[in-house]
Design a protein around this nucleic acid. Sequence first.
DNA 1: ATCAGTATTTACAGAACTGTCAACAAGGTT
DNA 2: AACCTTGTTGACAGTTCTGTAAATACTGAT
Lengths: 214, 214
Amino acid sequence: MAKKTHKSPEQARDAILDAAEQIVVQVGPAGLRISAVAKKAGMAHPNIIHHFGSREGLLNSLANRMGERATHRITEAIKTAVDAPAQGKAAAMTQVLDTAYPGDEGRAAVWMHLSGAESSLKENMQQIVELSHQLRKTVSEDADLEHTNRLVMLVTLALVGEVVSGQGIKEALGFAEDNRAHFRAWLAEILLNLPDDQLSTSLDINHSIPQNHK
Amino acid sequence: MAKKTHKSPEQARDAILDAAEQIVVQVGPAGLRISAVAKKAGMAHPNIIHHFGSREGLLNSLANRMGERATHRITEAIKTAVDAPAQGKAAAMTQVLDTAYPGDEGRAAVWMHLSGAESSLKENMQQIVELSHQLRKTVSEDADLEHTNRLVMLVTLALVGEVVSGQGIKEALGFAEDNRAHFRAWLAEILLNLPDDQLSTSLDINHSIPQNHK
DNA sequence: ATCAGTATTTACAGAACTGTCAACAAGGTT
DNA sequence: AACCTTGTTGACAGTTCTGTAAATACTGAT
């Protein structure tokens, strides 16, 4: 009845991915039904299999698209933070944390990761570490790369944790609604003000004397 | 053929929960099939429904049991850290982080949380904050409770992040296998050595002067 | 020992979902 | 205009899973 205007493969795939992303954000990857995606995208469900091969193929494509978009947002935010003047560093750093995983999208990304979806995490993370190290060097020139590594890991883990459980933990700790952004700003400033020598622990001393005597 | 020795309801429930926990750790809550649980527990699947009402009831019971066990472990670890002597603080603090979410169990717990399972998070978190504040006061007596709140939030989020994505991020950053525990020790020492005044940011100053002129 | 209660099982009903197949339709190409 | 490629669809097959129902077996109490 309705006109079936044939879309180009790219258009069709994008429309399907848009619909799938909305659903995954709500119900998680395991709850995604291709019939629901088809309904939201306004088509019959075999069309989705035609474009993505299978339900799993759709989930992998979606995970990749979300990962690429997130990486692009994060790297752009870090770049602007690198170029920011000294008095604007804290705000720019906060911006980095804010754009890393905006809202429910990040939650869905982590969820998909748990469910085994593929994504090009490795290359992305190394790019992020490099940029972060540039950013740290704009604050203290003798910044240690190993410390940057660990700080990036800490921030990344905290961000992952926040998008997963941030809401619940915030409520459990009695934080007000707007304190979630406040927490990110607090974390950003602390990270910037951490002197590099404070990141060297006694463990590093032990670690710098490996016991290689065979 | 095999003797069907009738267990007490408690024994049966425990056996089922044990089997379910092993499976959830592997495949996540969405992938849990009560037939698989029954097979691992050595019984027929309707018996599980008889004891838990439904598949969802089983998942909720499991989430509660895991949450209670984790809370117990964490609070005990913090208590010993409170009583630890000064030179043993760092090691005790590391122990707290290590016992918080041991391995795959924590991953499953977060996964279940994402899938909407109920758990008594709120009461547990407040108890943990109180103990953590006691621990901080053994290091610096004038520790601010608000800072403890934020630190607990940071650590909790980082731990959640680690159990969820720690493996992948570690690999992406090129960390060796044993550096995962190393990261926790590093974080523990940093947390203990953070002076309280360094946790006060310019935001707190702004925040203490609210703009209420209407 | 008999009986009541319930833990346990076998068989089955019902629903939901993925993927297949054949047919149709739209859009560009010759 | 005829045609070919392919996006699109309706109907269907097959599988898998949850929950139900009735029968059975174990255990403790009287």
